[in-house]
């Protein structure tokens, strides 16, 4: 009833089948990158990718996810290397950041279908609400990510997580490797 794939791993949630996917992800799987903002599909902070579509995870039950493939912000890339993530940092999009997982997931789904969306297509796809006012940069970042996806441009704006201290020390003269290694 509630068996499906989350970030390429099979899961079975022993929860009420009517539980919205959002709360299974957050409270059972501890995938807290997906945010609760309204529970009514208005804000889009909970957007995840289900079989290639950007879906508000507060509006689908885990029963409805049976057999499907869910990707959350944690599964979009292992190392922030997705062009949308890189473009988001290059354009300095996030402010408070709370709505941004949903924004990134929505933009990634849009660009997967169309790597060169026009203004109207961007407007139609990006219905998520941001209260900090990151909208103008989102437009620019989607265009930049599109250029990267089309191979016209490369960016390396956000470092991968988990850089080892030894590697950091090799790259940065002011750092020393940790003692005893």
């Amino acid at each position: 009833m509630t068996k499906f794939s989350v970030n390429d791993r099979p899961v079975e949630y022993r929860m009420d089948p009517e539980t919205p996917l959002l709360w299974a992800l957050r409270d059972a799987s501890n995938l807290t990158g997906t945010k609760y903002g309204c529970g009514t599909g208005d804000c889009g902070a909970c957007t995840v990718d289900i079989d290639g579509e950007a879906i508000r995870s507060c509006l689908v039950t885990i029963a409805e996810c049976e057999g499907r493939f869910v990707t959350t912000i944690e599964g979009l890339s292992r190392d922030r290397s997705h062009p949308v993530q890189q473009a988001w940092v290059a354009e300095q999009v996030p402010q408070c950041g709370f709505c941004q997982s949903g924004m990134v997931m929505t933009a990634a789904a849009l660009l997967r279908k169309n790597s060169n969306p026009g203004d109207a297509e961007i407007d139609a796809a990006m219905t998520n609400i941001c209260r900090c006012g990151t909208y103008p940069r989102i437009r620019a970042a989607i265009r930049l990510a599109g250029r990267v996806l089309r191979g016209e441009e490369r960016i390396a704006a956000a470092p991968p997580p988990g850089i080892r201290p030894e590697d950091a020390a090799r790259a940065i003269p002011a750092l020393r490797p940790p003692p005893g290694r």
Binding site: T32, K35, T72, V84, W88, S101, A158
Partner: peptide
């Protein structure tokens, strides 16, 4: 300079009060 909090805000790892487990 690029904001220090941005990388964590594009991969879902930035923690808010509701992300404490």
């Amino acid at each position: 300079l690029t904001r220090l909090d941005l990388p964590a805000k594009v991969d879902g790892s930035a923690n808010y009060a509701g992300d404490i487990r």
